[in-house]
């Protein structure tokens, strides 16, 4: 085992050859045009209002807090929420779309931009960031899901590590269901490093089927819904 790297490469290559050979022997000559036609369920079409109502009710059922607001009022709403929770510090991603909100918050809370690499800052991220603010790409009515599309400005851990997650959701970007969302935006053409659908605060029912919130991710999910 002097050259460990070559070792597992060889193991993997042999395994690959054997597995694929076995599987291919079985599907040899298969005519994929003959596969049966697939069915799908026709979900009723809903109006914008119905979709919104469904979105909010699903989120609330899952213990998320939904606040209808406007871009103008948002800073006020956020600072009120933080006050209630006794939180004075907010981590945020440097994203142009909510620059004004951040500016307006400046005098109200202790702001911290996520402008650092996680590598030497894990302790700080885990222990000194009680709340985070992020944007979202769009959302899904049927399941009350918010689509996070992390990037350089809004890293993946921004919406995961701080115990309170405030997320801005634009009602104009609400889609009926996951399937129609993916097709309309052609996700198959280009996916980023990571996409996450979030449908509530972190939870578990692993102890005697009793639901408890705040298992590992955020204990609270506060949805700031705009453009209703």
């Amino acid at each position: 085992m002097t050259n460990t790297k070559a070792d597992i490469k060889a193991v993997s290559n042999t395994a690959r050859g054997n597995i694929l050979a076995k599987l291919k022997a079985e599907v040899n000559g298969a005519d994929y045009k003959k596969l049966p036609e697939e069915v799908s369920f026709n979900y009723p079409k809903f109006s914008r209002e119905e979709n919104l109502a469904q979105f909010i009710s699903e989120l609330e059922k899952n213990h998320a807090q939904v606040i209808k607001t406007t871009k103008e009022n948002m800073a006020e709403v956020i600072s009120e929420q933080l006050k209630v929770l006794n939180i004075t510090k907010l981590l945020y991603g440097e994203n142009d779309s909510h620059r004004e909100v951040i500016n307006a918050l400046d005098s109200k809370v202790d702001l911290q931009a996520y402008d650092f690499s996680i590598d030497n800052n894990k302790e700080m991220l885990f222990n000194e960031c009680p709340a985070a603010l992020s944007t979202s790409r769009c959302s899904i009515a049927a399941t009350g899901s918010i689509v996070l599309w992390p990037d350089e400005n809004e890293p993946r851990s921004l919406t995961l590590v701080p115990p309170v997650h405030l997320v801005i959701v634009d009602a104009n970007e609400l889609h009926a269901d996951f399937a129609s969302l993916m097709t309309s935006q052609q996700w198959q053409d280009k996916l980023p490093t990571n996409v996450v659908l979030v449908s509530g605060p972190s939870k578990t029912a692993d102890i005697q089927q009793t639901l408890a919130y705040g298992a590992h991710g955020p204990k609270a999910l506060i949805v700031l819904l705009i453009n209703i």
Partner: peptide, 24 residues
């Protein structure tokens, strides 16, 4: 599995950390 319309998280991973990304 659990009667949930969807799980709290649905996580789709397509690559390791890219240049310029701050975590992952």
């Amino acid at each position: 599995a659990t009667g949930q319309a969807i799980s709290t998280y649905f996580n789709m991973i397509s690559s390791p950390r890219k240049l310029g990304e701050k975590d992952g």
